[in-house]
């Protein structure tokens, strides 16, 4: 396996933050990864437009688990609108980079968070611009791999 994970990836993989489920969550998002068949599920608890709590469960590689962990850390305590600006690149950067062949796993985290927020909007009857979630409608992006530039 010609790849090396950063210390941060290893840390978030071995001690993932925010693992679990939230009962009666305000928003739930589950996405699957077309590249290798992995799945991530995110639970949100929203209070006054702020992500008061977030939990995840992931079926996937070390990189998928670490990006799930980091993505939940990055959005916890943030306003929902702010969380929507989360990108897979930001998650990867916060982890000090991912091997190129593993960049697609970070897309899973971004999409799961967005799907959960969309679910929250839908359930709470909050109006939104569908363009915000256009990537999800297309079934996600960046499912090519290997040729992605290393961070």
């Amino acid at each position: 396996m010609a790849m090396v994970y950063s210390e941060k990836v290893k840390d978030h993989f071995i001690n993932p933050r925010n693992v679990g489920e939230i009962e009666n969550a305000d928003g739930v998002g589950e996405v699957g990864n077309a590249s290798c068949g992995d799945i991530m599920k995110v639970y949100l608890q929203i209070e006054d437009g702020v992500i008061a709590d977030v939990k995840f469960k992931t079926f996937g590689c070390a990189s998928a688990i670490a990006t799930s962990s980091m993505a939940t850390e990055l959005i916890k305590g943030r306003a929902v609108e702010e969380a929507l600006t989360l990108t897979n690149k930001a998650v990867a950067e916060a982890l000090d980079g991912l091997p190129p062949v593993k960049m697609h796993c970070s897309v899973l985290a971004e999409e799961a968070v967005k799907t959960a927020i969309k679910d929250y909007y839908d359930r709470a009857g909050i109006a939104y611009d569908p363009a915000l979630f256009a990537d999800l409608e297309r079934g996600g992006h960046a499912h090519d791999h290997g040729d992605l530039v290393e961070e």
């Binding site: 396996m1 010609a2 790849m3 290798c36 068949g37 590689c61 697609h104």
Partner: peptide, 8 residues
């Protein structure tokens, strides 16, 4: 696993 293969 696919995730260890490099080719996914």
């Amino acid at each position: 696993s696919a995730c260890t293969s490099g080719s996914l």
